[in-house]
Structure formats: C-alpha cells, structure tokens
Amino acid sequence: MNISIAAEELFYIGSLPVTNSMVVTWIVSLLLIVLGMVATRRMQMVPSGVQNTFEAVIEGLLGLVDSVTHNREQTKKFFPLIATIFLFIITSSWAGLLPGMGAVGLQEVHEGKSVIVPLIRAGTADLNTTVALAAISVITIQVVGIASIGFFKYAGKFINVSSPMNFFVGLLELVSEVSKLISFSFRLFGNIFAGEVLLTVMVFLVPYIIPLPFLFLEVFVGFIQALVFSLLTLVFLKMATEEAHH
C-alpha cells in the first residue's frame, strides 16, 4: 500500500515533472475534446448517439446556469467556463475510479523499498490541479466583477472608508476572496483524495464485494464535487456582477 499526498512523478519533459495526475488530466482532456468533436461532427436536428448524450448534458448544465443567473445573456457568458469546470472535474475524478487505478504502475525503489508508482491517479487528487482550477475560478470572478460594474465600484467592495464598520466588512470581503482559493482547491482535493485512500484501504483489507458500495459512493462524490465547484464558481460570478448594497 502506497499512499502519498503528492502526485507521483513518472518522468520529466525538460524540467517539467510529469505526474500520474497530469497524465490523467491530459487523457481526460483529450477524451473530452475527441468526444465533443465526434458529437458535433455531423449535427442532426434529430439527435442520436454521442450528440444526444452531449446535448442532454449541455442542456442540463444550461438549465442549471440559467436557474442561478435568471438572465440568458449572462448564462451565455458564464456557461463555457462552468460547463468546462464541471466536465473536467467529473471526468478527472472518475478516471481515478477505473479498475487497476492503484495497481498498474512503474516499479520504483523508494527509500530502500520497492514500491509501485501507479500510472493512474485521479486528476483532481492532486493539489496542483485543484489549485489551478481554483485560481482560474477566482481570477475569473475578479475579472468579471471589474468588467461588469467597473474597477472603482468593484474595489469599493473591499476598500471602504465611509465608516469603521464598513472598512472592517471590506477587509473581511478581501480575506474571503483569498480564502475562496483555498476552500475551492482543498475541498475538491480533500474529497477526491480521501476517496482514493478509502478505496485503496478497503481493497487492501477486503478485495471483493465490500469495496463496491464505496466505489459507488465515490462515483457520487465525484459528481457532487464537480457540481459544488462549478455551482460555487457560478454563484460567486453572479455575485461579482452585482453592486454592493449597503
């Protein structure tokens, strides 16, 4: 049994270390792109196959975004980011649930012991991935906020000297923006990584039948986390476009 918080490095491209999580995110991205292109290659008014599946997913997500924004224009603006976050997280998380995820790997000698470094590790079970997603989400929130209500109004949410009370509230808002970065990334990482550890331990203890419910649970957790991440981003985006009322 080999449990490591950090994703294991497999090889290097130049000075860039390539971890198993990175490989999974690349595979997942490629898969999404290829499937997406297949789905839209021969679009038909009466959909079938891959087109139908993607249409259903996209329509569902569109409805979800609509239910938060209540504004078609805004929905169209936010939709690509939200949908991509959702699709990327859910597929990256589920990739870690594939059979053999902790078993197929490279044999390496680590601190004098021979260990198997798994080739597959959920993309979101690596803080680099989740921090990257959180950074994209938080930066987008700031940019959208500035773009929609103007730089000074947006800055006024955080720096407000009209009264000591408002100044303090502004500071809190500023801290909360930074803490979003941490809460976004650690929530996703913690959930998916904990699931991986749980499954590894369960398989190690009882190889058959018993881990199955946990496997289903992790499928569910992957979906929930993808939903939570994308919905929170969406809600923060929506909030950033609204002027502060005092």
């Binding site: 490591s4 918080i5 950090a6 994703a7 000075s15 860039l16 270390p17 971890t19 990175m22 995110t25 690349w26 991205s29 999404l32 792109i33 690509p80 980011l81 991509t84 990327f88 690596d126 803080l127 680099n128 991935t129 921090v131 990257a132 997603l133 950074a135 994209i136």
Partner: peptide, 19 residues
C-alpha cells in the same frame, strides 16, 4: 503537499486549452 508551480501552470494552460 506536492504543489509545484511548473505543474500548476501546466494545469492552468491545460484547462485553458480545454476550455
């Protein structure tokens, strides 16, 4: 925690391309 800014940037770029 395994955070490496090179990987971080690679993931951001990856996500950007995907998006």
């Amino acid at each position: 925690l395994g955070i490496d800014w090179r990987i971080l940037i690679a993931q951001i770029v990856n996500f950007g391309v995907l998006l």
